[in-house]
Structure formats: C-alpha cells, structure tokens
C-alpha cells in the first residue's frame, strides 16, 4: 500500500489526488491521508505530498468540467469538514487503519464518478459508501455555515471595523466570507475563527476577502468598542426580551434551535 500524506486543505488534497493519479501505482494500492498517521504500518510506503497550486488548479478544473460546478462545491464543502475521530473498535486491523477518511473518500468518489456515464450525477449515488461519507460531511459543513450566517454577531470597534468572533467546528470561513462580503460591501470587517486562530478580513469597497493566520491577534483592540456599540447591543437585547410570548415560553425548544455552542458568541445570550 502506498499512502500519500498531504495537507488538510483543498489545495493539499487536490495535489495528492493529482500525484496519486500520476503515480501509476494502481488505484487499489493507493490510500490518501490528510493528516499524520497515528501508526505507521510495516508494509506501507509513505509518500509526502508537497502542495502545488498548479496541480491543484488542474484537478479543480477537471472536476468542474466533468462533474459540474454544483458537485465541485459539494466536494469542496466536504473537504472543509472537521472529521469526527474514527471510532476505535476492539479489534484493530489493517482495514481499520485504512478506514474511510475524507481525502481517500474524495479520491474514490472521483474514480467512481469518472467511470459513470453521467458523472454530474455522482452525488446522487448514496449507495456508494465513499459518496455517502462525503455527502454527510458536506451536509454538516453546509448546515453549520448556514447557522452561522444567522448566528454570527458583529461588534463595532472604535475604528469603525466590524469584528465577529466565532467557534465553528468546521472550516467555514470561506463560506462566511462569500456571504458577508456580498452583503456588507461597504464595511471593513473581520471574522475571527478562534478554534483555528484564523481571521477573515474584508476591506470596504473590495470584492474579495483574505483569510490569514491570527494567532497573535491584538486582544485589546478587539474589545475596544465604538461609542454607540453598547447602546445597540442593549437595544437588541431589549428587543430580544420583549419579542418572547410568555404564554408560549419554551426554553428547551430555544436551546434545540440555537444550540449552546452558538449561544456563547451571540450577544443576546450574554448575561
């Protein structure tokens, strides 16, 4: 078995797919892994993949052309997922080590798609375990991103910048970036993914945004609110209180609809 180890990014995994394909080692002898292996196997050869934007682009273009943009988006969303830890079974064997993980599932899904008469239908083949796995991952990412489109809260800082802090399970910043730079084109804003220590930055009047490392973010700066910020927070909290119908009060339903992990970043739940 040849294990291609790559970066856990879209470009990293795309490059690994390119290299694996190009290696002519036989698809069934190949496994792609987007993290450090927990155990090194004896009869495996480990191949490090250097992320290469040119190769990645070729893979991306091929997917878009053969499978269509919709499938491409779904696959990218799946790759942005934080995978749940694979369940440890009592009898660890080779099959467990090479369980379904997203990078390899992505490779197998592509292989399957290219063998189909109409590859644009690949995401409908939920009978295939790899396709199903990617489908579930992308659904997770999609759901979380959609939640955050609503639950994210900006606070206005002294310099007029809108700042939001969030703790997403998955790497959803690109999806948030697309949405908010379209919605707030005239604002300077920053979305800080505290779990990954990444910041998404958008400048007023510019269509694009960038995502950058923010492990050394200035803590003082992000708590330095503008003069009117607290006033609007109060107004919002007041609205939030009075909109509840007492006769229908139902905290359990509330917590079910906006889970606790989102509440901690939403100003109306801070007391």
């Amino acid at each position: 078995m040849y294990v291609f180890i790559c970066e856990d990014t879209i470009d990293g995994i795309f490059t690994a797919v390119y290299n694996a394909w190009d290696s002519h080692l036989g698809h069934k002898n190949i496994y792609i892994l987007a993290k450090e292996p927990e155990n090194y196997e004896l009869f495996c050869e480990y191949i490090r993949v250097e992320t290469d934007l040119e190769k990645s682009k070729k893979v991306a273009d091929t997917i878009k052309r053969r499978l269509g943009v919709t499938v491409y988006t779904t696959l990218c969303e799946a790759i942005m997922a934080e995978e749940p830890c694979p369940k440890k079974t009592s009898r660890m064997n080779a099959a467990d080590t090479f369980s379904i993980t997203k990078a390899d599932a992505f490779y197998r899904t592509l292989l399957y798609a290219f063998s189909m008469e109409n590859p644009t239908r690949i995401m409908e083949c939920l009978g295939n375990p790899y396709v199903l796995y990617l489908f579930e991952l992308s659904r997770n990412v999609h759901t979380e991103a959609h939640h955050l489109l609503g639950f994210l809260r900006f606070q206005e800082l002294q310099n007029g910048i809108l700042f939001a802090e969030t703790h997403p399970k998955n790497y959803v910043l690109p999806i948030l970036g697309d949405h908010f730079s379209d919605r707030l084109p005239g604002e300077n804003f920053m979305i800080y993914d505290k779990n990954r220590k990444l910041a998404l930055i958008h400048r007023a009047g510019i269509k694009n945004f960038l995502i950058t490392d923010a492990s050394s973010i200035n803590q003082e700066m992000i708590h330095n609110y503008s003069a009117s910020e607290l006033e609007y927070q109060k107004l919002w909290c007041g609205f939030f209180e009075s909109i509840t119908i007492e006769a229908r009060k139902n905290p359990k339903l509330q917590n079910q609809n906006i889970p606790k992990r989102f509440q901690k970043d939403a100003v109306e739940f801070q007391k």
Partner: peptide, 26 residues
C-alpha cells in the same frame, strides 16, 4: 445578490438569526 454599493442581500431559504424564549425563529 448585493448590489456592490448599498447594504444587504437575500437568500431564498431565509436565515434565522436567533430564537426567542418561546423557541420561535427571529
């Protein structure tokens, strides 16, 4: 889609921003 100048856009399924004490979408 946003118009590139003003503020705002809309997406067809709608977006819930929070849930009030009675559990209804706000």
């Amino acid at each position: 889609k946003g118009d590139g100048k003003g503020m705002g856009n809309c997406i067809a399924p709608g977006i819930c921003h929070t849930f009030s004490g009675d559990g209804r979408c706000v």
